[in-house]
Design a protein around this nucleic acid. Structure first.
Length: 543
DNA sequence: CTTAGGG
DNA sequence: CCCTAAG
């Protein structure tokens, strides 16, 4: 299984350029009416793309609405052959024999295994001996659509997207999506595509309707539909959480325009700053303001935009809005910044610091021509001081704790206080902390990080639950890596950090095993005595 | 806000 | 550590 996956991954990578080129052109075509850009893009891609790439180009280039629809119809036929598109486009010498099968729209359903294999080879430039029809179909589709979201049911590849067969029966919808695509910008298009292929299969009513329609009109009724449907559902529910492509991923698909945004971002940021004095923001804790105001800023940006159609998504700040926002507030004397600093006891101060750090980090790549730069520096200094005192407090605490807890070398983990390109304090985990963490996991079970944090890490104001989780993951990794064989008490690498005693690692491993194996699930409320007692497990169903 | 996971 | 989708 694993092998398979890996192989798939490799294949996917190998076809990267192909996909990319296709996508690029696809996008361009949809965004702009003029094909100049498309052509340019195409030209640019030509050198690096030789044989295989020709097909997708044709697919895209012939992407007029009607053509697509027509070819869509054609696919309904019993044809065991794939429909070759209208091929009104022959500029690209797209007559590679292998790819006749991949042109225009593709109905993999009707292909024999051999044909699928051929298609596979055409797509990935590799031979395959896989006989699994479904696998082939999905692989090819994934390759062509650059998406892992390929349903197990019937689908059709059109224009580099996965389209449900049934959907073709619904011209209105198709057209709608087409027109939308026309007016949408890159990110949105991508997004829509993804959603399309994702939400569609999971919507039962939709599918049923479609089925009815297609049942009448398709020559070959879907006898196996029920099975397929079940499979699909199985697929949906199987595994862990399913994540759709992150926003970042989507953003990265459209690297262009980022530049243009930069300047605007800065200016828009100012605007958002002015909204700060709203009563709400005063009352509410800083954290909450963030999300609101960020949407503010982006929206303002789009309203006051300079006419450059920048996709909404790509404008959204990458980081947590809160941080950015809080940081920005400081640029405005009228802001709450000063208040907050005063009021804030200790923890908030730290948060602030971290915010600074991250802000600096994020902002760095941006051109800082604006007068804001000065502010940045000032703030940087001021905060450096804050950090300093703050860290000393924590350090003391830490030492104390660690000392009481066990032998702890507790190297001064503070990085040199250089002008803060630093993000959150990087605090190396002390042995004491690790112990506490392990302990907490033993008590409350892995996964209940917030609880562990509250109860076992009460004295550490830093170390969020996420931190705990991360650390646990690392510990686990380490313990596993060190190997079940007990050797290697010293760790293999001459790490700069504290070598984690094998004892702890083995304990981690133990815990991990217990947690993953035993199905014991106790009431979430009670805390049983730890140590020799029964250890609470998290629901094993997760793993 | 919490968790889980990928980066 | 960070980031962010799912809950």
């Amino acid at each position: 299984m694993l092998q398979k996956v890996k192989q798939e991954e490799r294949l996917r990578l190998s076809s990267e350029s192909l996909i990319h080129s296709a996508k690029c052109m696809d996008v361009k075509c949809q965004t702009s009416d003029s094909c100049n850009e498309t052509q340019a893009c195409n030209d640019k891609l030509q050198p690096e793309n030789t044989s295989m790439e020709t097909a997708p180009s044709s697919m895209v280039l012939n992407g007029s609405c009607s053509a697509l629809l027509r070819s869509a119809e054609a696919c309904l036929g019993p044809a065991n052959e794939v429909v070759t598109s209208m091929s009104s486009v022959s500029e690209c010498t797209s007559s590679k024999p292998d790819f006749s099968i991949l042109k225009g729209e593709i109905c993999l359903d009707n292909l024999s295994i051999r044909e699928l294999q051929e298609a596979f080879r055409a797509t990935f430039g590799r031979q395959t001996s896989v006989k699994d029809k479904l696998w082939l179909k999905r692989r090819i589709t994934m390759g062509l659509t650059n998406s892992c979201d390929v349903p197990t049911t019937s689908f059709v590849i059109k224009d580099n997207k996965v389209v449900h067969k049934e959907m073709k029966e619904e011209p209105s919808r198709l057209q709608l999506s087409q027109t939308e695509a026309g007016s949408m910008s890159t990110d949105q298009v991508t997004d829509a595509t993804i959603n399309n292929s994702q939400t569609l299969p999971s919507s039962p009513t939709d599918r049923t309707e479609d089925l009815q329609v297609s049942g009448k009109q398709l020559r070959k009724p879907f006898c196996e539909y029920d099975e397929k449907n079940e499979n699909l559902q199985m697929e949906q529910f199987a595994g862990k959480r399913v994540r759709k492509p992150t926003r970042r991923y989507i953003e990265e698909l459209s690297e262009f325009e980022t530049r243009e945004c930069t300047a605007k971002l800065l200016s828009s940021v100012k605007n958002s700053g002015h909204c700060q004095s709203s009563p709400k923001s005063r009352i509410r804790p800083v954290r909450d303001i963030g999300s609101q105001s960020i949407s503010f800023s982006t929206r303002q940006d789009s309203l006051g935009g300079f006419g450059i159609q920048v996709p909404y998504v790509s404008r959204v700040r990458r980081g947590r809005p809160r941080k950015n926002f809080a940081t920005l507030m400081k640029y405005h004397p009228s802001g709450i910044a000063s208040n907050r600093v005063k009021k804030a006891p200790r923890i908030p101060a730290m948060q602030q610091n971290s915010e600074i750090g991250s802000r600096v980090r994020k902002a760095r790549p941006l051109p800082m021509h604006t007068p804001q730069r000065n502010f940045v520096d000032e703030i940087g200094k001021r905060d450096a001081e804050t950090i300093n005192s703050d860290e000393e407090q924590d350090l003391r605490l830490e030492k104390f704790d660690a000392a009481g807890d066990n032998t702890d070398n507790n190297a001064d983990t503070r990085p040199p206080l250089t002008g803060g390109v630093r993000r959150k304090h990087h605090r190396a985990w002390t042995l004491g902390e690790v112990l506490k963490l392990v302990d907490g996991v033993a008590r409350y079970g892995a996964g209940r990080w917030s609880e562990i944090r509250r109860l076992a890490f009460a004295s550490y104001s830093y170390r969020t639950s996420v931190d705990l989780k991360d650390k646990w993951r690392n510990l686990l990794r380490a313990s596993l890596a060190q190997g079940p064989t007990d050797r290697g008490a010293k760790n293999s690498r001459k790490h700069t950090s504290i070598p984690i005693p094998a004892a702890i690692l083995s304990r981690v491993r133990e815990l991990a095993e217990m947690q993953s194996q035993t199905g014991i699930e106790l009431g979430p409320s009670k805390i049983t005595g730890r140590g020799g007692g029964i250890v609470q497990e998290k629901g094993s169903g997760f793993l």
